[in-house]
């Protein structure tokens, strides 16, 4: 862990080497992502609700997904950019070092510009929660924390799966976008607003539903079973096969080579 933070510090140092570029990118990220939130606000100025979900509920949903995604882009960028590592041969280098491979991949890259999105997501989250008139209890607090954690976990898992895919074809990136970007855009809204098929897909195949839909139902009081507040735990279980698949990929790599 100490190693990871040290690497993180060095990444920050590298990025600060290019000061102007860093500031401009940071600001432009803020602008781009505010436009996403504006779309939702614009949408709700026309319709008061979508299938019973109010604006702040959707914003909450949205910000949780954005939070998890941005978190991984900042802190797990190496896995997101894993294809690069395979192509330029940097992965061989990692295999030559006496530390856990996933940890090393994490150390390998990070993207501090995306911190702007992380902060943004948190601000929107706070605003949404304030406006929602939550009747707070201990389960709701746990529920919110679990939602945030599971959002981080699910993108971590999906990034890992996408990275494992690189072992097979080296470069086949569009498929993964279906799950990351595509999935992200779906899951920004409460998946209940979509057709049944989508709901099943994003509950069973990729458990986005457990990140924000089911817990959200409990959180805003649409469902009173506190079982729902613990549903994000499913996502952590989902991580296990993701990690196993990644290790299987490494094994294949070392028998096939670049």
């Amino acid at each position: 862990m100490k190693l990871y933070f040290k690497a993180l510090g060095l990444h920050l140092k590298s990025e600060l080497e290019y000061r102007a570029s860093f500031i401009i990118s940071f600001l432009s990220q803020i602008l781009v992502f505010f436009s996403y939130y504006f779309i939702i606000i614009a949408l709700f100025s026309k319709f008061s609700n979508i299938k019973g979900f109010t604006m702040y509920e959707v914003l909450l949903c949205f910000s949780i997904i954005q939070f998890g995604f941005a978190f991984n882009e900042v802190f797990a960028r190496g896995i997101d950019k894993f294809d690069k590592l395979i192509i330029d041969g940097g992965f061989d280098r990692l295999l030559l070092r006496p530390k856990n491979i996933i940890l090393q991949v994490l150390c390998n890259e990070s993207d501090f510009i995306k911190v702007s999105r992380l902060i943004q997501a948190l601000i929107v989250l706070v605003i949404a929660v304030i406006h929602l008139n939550i009747s707070w209890n201990i389960f709701r607090v746990i529920c919110l924390i679990l939602m945030l954690c599971s959002s981080i976990a699910i993108f971590f898992g999906i990034f890992l799966l996408a990275a494992s895919y690189c072992f097979l074809t080296v470069q086949g990136l569009e498929v993964r976008n279906v799950f990351t970007d595509g999935g992200k855009h779906m899951a920004q809204y409460p998946i209940g607003v979509f057709k049944k098929g989508f709901v099943y897909f994003f509950t069973i195949i990729i458990p986005y539903g457990f990140v924000n839909y089911y817990p959200l139902m409990y959180f805003v009081g649409k469902n009173n079973s506190c079982l729902y507040s613990f549903s994000p735990i499913v996502v952590f279980v989902y991580l296990i096969p993701c990690i196993l698949v990644f290790y299987a990929g490494i094994k294949k790599y070392s028998s096939v080579g670049s």
Binding site: L3, K6, A7, L10, L96
Partner: peptide
């Protein structure tokens, strides 16, 4: 073992080599 690939760098591009050395200290 130590490995030097003449064609590939293991040093971090944008920061001084000494920082990479410090990181390697923790890696090993």
């Amino acid at each position: 073992i130590g490995v030097v690939f003449g064609q590939r760098s293991q040093l971090w591009w944008d920061i001084p080599a000494e920082d990479t050395f410090d990181l390697l200290k923790d890696i090993y």
